[in-house]
């Protein structure tokens, strides 16, 4: 079947099997390998992307279900050559080690800050609790998101 969607601002389309998962569509068809997969059971969250502005686990969404929608992946975080404050925060606070969970974590973090520009530590921990990081013990991910909250470009804070 044919699917067509907007990914990071670009219209894309392809002929795929109806059972194809969005994560595989992004990775294998579009070559957007920044989105990862780490489990078969929707537990790990390495696959988190946005669909119509909401974080979803792309291993649990069929490419067909994303047809006609707006998808945003980690590759769409950087604006021009300007890193998103979340990306900058992950670097400044050493919020990543192997980097495998990082794209999913950053997509959730970006969403959180768009909806809650000054989250508490508890709110951050809650927001990322559906995603697993095996390397960082979460401490520096929390700090990275706090860093980003403190360095938001003022105009871009959504209501």
């Amino acid at each position: 079947m044919r699917v067509a969607m907007n990914v990071n601002g670009e219209e894309v389309g392809a002929e795929v099997e109806p059972r194809m998962l969005l994560v595989h569509f992004l990775r294998d068809e579009l070559g957007l390998t920044g989105t990862h997969w780490g489990c078969d059971t929707s537990n790990c969250g390495t696959c988190v992307v946005w669909m119509d502005g909401e974080p979803v686990k792309s291993c649990t969404v069929l490419a067909a279900m994303a047809s006609g929608r707006d998808v945003r992946t980690v590759e769409g975080l950087e604006q021009g050559t300007q890193l998103d404050p979340v990306q900058e925060g992950f670097m400044q606070e050493h919020g990543l080690q192997c980097g495998f969970c990082t794209p999913g974590m950053m997509m959730t973090a970006r969403w959180l800050l768009d909806h809650n520009p000054d989250p508490s530590e508890a709110e951050i921990r809650e927001a990322i609790s559906g995603q697993i990081c095996r390397c960082t013990g979460y401490e520096n991910i929390v700090r990275a998101i706090r860093w980003a909250a403190a360095h938001q470009p003022a105009k871009e804070v959504a209501s």
Binding site: G31, L32, T33, E75, Q87, M91, G99
Partner: peptide, 21 residues
């Protein structure tokens, strides 16, 4: 010192095994 390797990971440009085609 901030990590050199972060530049690629932050942009989704890491090169893990399953990314290779």
């Amino acid at each position: 010192m901030l990590r050199k390797e972060d530049a690629r990971f932050l942009r989704g440009q890491g090169h893990y095994l399953d990314d290779i085609k």
